[in-house]
Amino acid sequence: MAASPEAKFTEETVLWVKHHTPKLITFAISRPESYRFAAGQFSRLGFHEGEGYIWRAYSVVSAEYADTLEYFAVLIQDGPMSARFARMKAGDTILLDKAATGFLLPERFADGRELVMLCTGSGIAPFLSILEQPEIWQRFDRLVLAHSVSHSDELIFNGRIAALREHPLVGEHAAKLTFIPVLTRETSGARLYKRLPELLKNGSLAEAAGFPFTQENTRFMLCGNPEMVKDTFQALLGMGFAMHRNRIPGQILMENGF
């Protein structure tokens, strides 16, 4: 007999909501003691809608050990979930699927000395969670996070990334990280100004990272809009890198942002 829908989710409380721009919000919800996830995974969040439900997947921004669950969302015009988020406030109720999922997990790489995380928009969310895990800093000699957005006001996590230097668990390793903000429709407020696939092809991204990307040492994780993920993947294939699979080790893991 199939479990009832109610058995698969919990009702949680919205703790706070912050509107960074008219389209970008972050928010936190209460976390059940039984809720487990690995940094890089996503939750399914939902609301009651009529006699049914509306669900969408959002990567967890919080560290695995955090007491609350934080998320980052891009509001889409006429999007049913976005409409809910736009009017959401502290104290509201939100539904949380009991099972986190996703395979954008750095531990899937069996080797490598450098981890390069490439993202657009809300695709930065899983990497923010990953960067708060001490294991990632101990595992890799160098970490690179490149966040590509259209306009400078969308680089809302620059301060959070800079604050990793003072993080009680990972701050001592912070010098390993190179953060590269990227803009595609402006020419101020970032280090680079073209799409990520182009920056890979012309060598600008490796130059900004401070080391050459090699099959032996460099591992890539991609997350963001499907077009970026597809084009970046193709650029990496053209550079000699390969998709990582459970039985066939490679250098690339990827996931479309939600």
Rank of each mutant, 00 (worst) to 15 (best):
A3E: 14
K8P: 00
F9G: 08
E12Q: 14
T13V: 14
V14Q: 07
P22Q: 02
I29M: 07
R31P: 13
S34M: 05
Y35P: 05
R36S: 12
F37A: 14
A38M: 15
Q41N: 04
F42T: 09
S43V: 07
R44G: 09
G46N: 06
H48R: 15
E49Q: 15
E51R: 13
Y53I: 08
R56I: 04
S59I: 07
E64W: 07
D67L: 13
E70H: 03
V74Y: 05
V74R: 05
V74P: 00
D78F: 05
G79K: 00
P80K: 11
R84C: 07
K89G: 07
G91Y: 04
G91V: 10
I94L: 14
A100L: 12
A100V: 12
G102N: 04
L104W: 12
A110S: 15
A110Y: 14
G112P: 06
L115C: 01
G123V: 13
S129D: 03
L131E: 05
Q138P: 06
D141I: 02
V144N: 05
H147C: 07
E154S: 13
I156C: 11
N158L: 15
I161S: 02
I161P: 06
E166K: 14
K176D: 00
V182R: 02
L183K: 04
G189E: 06
A190I: 09
E198D: 04
L200Q: 06
A208E: 12
P212S: 11
M221Q: 14
L222P: 02
G224H: 09
M228Y: 05
L236R: 07
L237S: 01
A242Y: 10
M243E: 12
E255G: 07
E255V: 09
G257Y: 04
